[in-house]
Design a protein around this nucleic acid. Structure first.
Lengths: 270, 270
DNA sequence: CTTGACTCTCCCCTCGGGGGAGAGGCCAGG
DNA sequence: CCTGGCCTCTCCCCCGAGGGGAGAGTCAAG
């Protein structure tokens, strides 16, 4: 009538390992019907295999054991549905994140010149009149603020009817990392006259010698280009002579995929 | 000239935690340029930030540290491409597996009657003449062998021109699990005369009382139905009086999605 | 009674770090 | 020179979900 089975046979019935069954017992998720007090042998009722099978399924979904207990101990079907829904959310996010990883590694493989293919060169940048907007920002907001600044400067230049002499730039006046803030400056090279209007000022960048390299890919991944440049400058006995600049050779409005962005990074050197 | 940075500043430069940097040092993946022998302070060269950034990227792809070391220490671009390709393979598999999990949980949520909604009933199955093929198999090969047996029996019945009286069945004469093998029997109910031909024999199943339930979903997930039935039989004071049967109410040829398969599971009881 | 198969608890291992303790080092100001 | 406030060091424990194995006790059949 009782017909209890020891752990080994129960393990075969349920295709759960003995180790796993013992762990579920410890955690109170699947407690044997009877534990012999003298031998500590665990004995299960065959009907418990049902719950065990449910655990196996939910583990197959990578659900944490604590969450599984909540699901199995919920008496309300609505609670079960809610928990399953939450887990689906988690699975969806992981799926998406893995999709992004896959896309990223595809890019890494495609431009197969190694992981970090930065080619550093030196050139002289001639004097250049620009329309600039300088402002203070932090790492969290820099993306949105730069975009807004580009719009502001673009509009001012457009209103003045001044033609542009090249792609727009960003000058990093301070090192901006997780907790430090600092100034950045948006600059549009000009091919004609321009009057300072409001915050958008007319200025002339002097002739400068720069060490430069080109970064291809989304803007988030520009970090290594900076490190390559600073490392190169040191190793070649130069000195950094001013704030670095980024020149945006692609227009995000016209290039839909961030993977195809091209950015030139320059460090003035002496 | 040397311009070494201690771990805290290097951590900010690379956005890698101090703990992580120390670990990479221990594993020899990113060793500081100089370690002060008296204080054990780690000092990094700024140019090492490049390698650090590469580690950060590859970790972002969930690549194991050992593999990252192989990638970074490979001098051959082909080796790098091979390692990245292997990792892409892994990512693809995980993506697929997560996709399957997501599909599974969708099904679980949709049939929202709880995780294990088996409804057990008792009925009497009338005497039934059948064409059967019995054979010995193991868990690994049962799927393919049953499919072949279905084809064999179906062909024999078709050749004899005997009409069928219902959906095909499978009788599990032995418990077949991971390491035990055993007999199963494929049976087609007949609505007309049939002569034993080769291994496909004519037989009559006697009237039987069965406890039964219906499993909806892929065949792999039929386990809980069995456990529910055996548990139910014990708890209701019956005894198992013969090998269990499965009746395939859906034809896999006509139902494309295994999630829609319907299988009736029966246990003869006394 | 013996033998062989089961089962018990306990401990260490995974992987990539996070958290914190307690001790020592670095640097600037007084 | 000393002190205070950071910075950094090593060492240890923790996460999840078990796997592997040691050493000892138990069960059931012959």
């Amino acid at each position: 009538m009782e017909n209890l089975v020891p752990i080994g046979r129960f393990s075969k019935m349920t295709r759960l390992s003995i180790k796993a069954l013992r762990r579920y017992d410890d955690l109170g998720i699947l407690v044997p019907a009877i534990v012999d007090p003298s031998s500590s042998y665990r004995y299960y009722r065959p009907s418990q295999a049902n719950r065990a099978e449910a655990i196996r399924m939910l583990r197959g979904l990578d659900m944490p054991l604590e969450r599984i207990r909540e699901v199995l101990d919920a008496d309300d079907a609505e609670i079960v549905a809610k928990l399953l829904g939450e887990h689906r959310q988690i699975l969806e996010e992981r799926l998406e994140s893995h999709g992004r990883m896959l896309a990223f590694i595809e890019r890494l493989i495609e431009r197969k010149e190694g992981v970090m293919p930065y080619d550093v060169q030196v050139k002289e940048v001639p004097e250049q009149p620009v329309a600039t907007l300088r402002f203070h920002t932090s790492l969290g907001t820099i993306g949105a603020e730069v975009a807004r600044a580009f719009a502001t400067v673009g509009e001012a230049v457009g209103r003045a009817g001044t033609p542009m002499a090249g792609p727009p730039m960003l000058i990093m006046h301070d090192v901006i990392d997780e907790e430090t803030e600092g100034d950045v400056e948006v600059a549009f090279p000009l091919a004609g006259p321009f009057e300072t209007s409001g915050d958008v000022r007319h200025q002339a960048y002097p002739t400068t010698t720069v060490a430069w390299t080109v970064h291809r890919g989304p803007y988030d991944e520009v970090g290594p280009a900076y490190h390559t440049l600073t490392g190169w400058i040191q190793e070649h006995g130069h000195e950094i002579a001013g704030p670095p600049r980024e020149v945006y050779l692609t227009d995000p409005q016209q290039v839909p995929d961030p993977a195809d962005y091209v950015t030139e990074v320059q460090f003035p050197i002496a």
